[in-house]
Design a binder for these strands. Sequence first.
DNA 1: ATGTGC
Length: 479
Amino acid sequence: MQPKNLKRLLQALARQGLDVSYNNKTYSIRLSNTSDAPVAEVLLPQGFPVEAKALKQLANLANVRHPAGGCVCRAYATPDFHPGDGGIAIGSVIETIGQVIPSAVGSDINCGMRLHVANLTIDQFLAKRNQFVERMKGDYFFGTRDVTMNARTMHALFQYGVPGWVDAMLDEPTGSFVKSDLNELLAEGDLIFLNGSMEGDWKLAPEELVPENGLVRDGGLATIGSGNHFVEIQRVERVENRALAHEWGIKEGQIAFMIHSGSRNVGKYIGGMWRDKAKASWEKGLKYPDSHIFPLSVHSHPELVTQYLQAEATAANYGFVNRLLLAELLRLRLREVYGDVEAPLVYDLPHNITLREGAGWVTRKGACPAYEGQPVIIPGSMGTPSYLVVGKGNPAFCASASHGAGRVLSRFDLTRKGASQSEEALGLTGVDCITLREERRIEEAPAAYKPIQPVIDVQVQADMVGVVARLSPVLTFKG
DNA sequence: ATGTGC
């Protein structure tokens, strides 16, 4: 951030009652309402753009405190953070004790990333690119995908995530799934964060947490979704950590595919429902919080906290299986077009989820868990590289990392002004993007995003992550 | 984020 803009930003925040100081050495911004410890901290590259609105949202979140008991004991934002629609900045990381905040997770429960590599070179891939695109288009956009589910497999999917769903399918395979492939899925289960299963002390059947409506339940399975979600073919452009790349099965020059998607309508339904339930649980006569962010306290509503966490787990499990199915379709079509292609999973991890950590819960809204030694997938844009990094479990940042580069222009900005801009100005020159809706391509153009390199660099300098490999986009599918 | 919206 330029010193001049920074000064203006700090003044604007001071007018809103936030005392902000900028530490030039660590490039962190501290917000504090009192003379006590800062309520929130943001790690930023020097000179990086940041919106006052995002800082205000972060401070609001850091101050959420249920009158019956509960607190946000720590609050951070990752360097890609930017204002969010529901009053919560994307890139927020909070640790809560005695309370959970459904709206801090929001609707996009278990939005996350999945990365595979494939034993194909870029030239081999491009030679049959058109044939491949036609098949994938049918699956992702026109519903020719075959993901037939029965009530039993859906129940297992909701309650136990990937391993539950695979077990149920092994008993009774449906659609194009065969036992050998399902056994392979079981074998790579430990390459999914939490094994792709948010288990809990289930007091409610998933059927009580997710509506019967088929559109919500299985209409979204194996579909990409909109917004920043995508499926992308990439090239491993550079390996920076040879030992880990070898261990994780990554080789320079090979093809990779990256999936960014979540729990679709299930998360939307559950997130919206629990945002409302938290508000409705507010005692009559008690003043609403100014921020309109409503927590659920374990002291006044323990049963609601349990139910919310179960509902969130239900949607999270759906999200894990959705990404798996998107990847399975891609694997299937790769084999059809290119022959016997091996496409092993590198890792799958969520960046929008509440996790039990230590004495409380850590809620990451558009931020990755970055535990020691764990793979972290940080996407760029359809015109800029994505990164595979390794977590350092740094407690100073709640063992977290950024989930992308961060938006610099809103979708609205681009739908309004983007159409009149040149391909070059939008950063779309040379970008191969497949979508049924031209406005998606514009809204998600590289120009909508901040530069990713400084975001990665500042996290490496802060010892949050280490770079393992850089992947460049080859072909992007947008919903 | 969402077959979106002021």
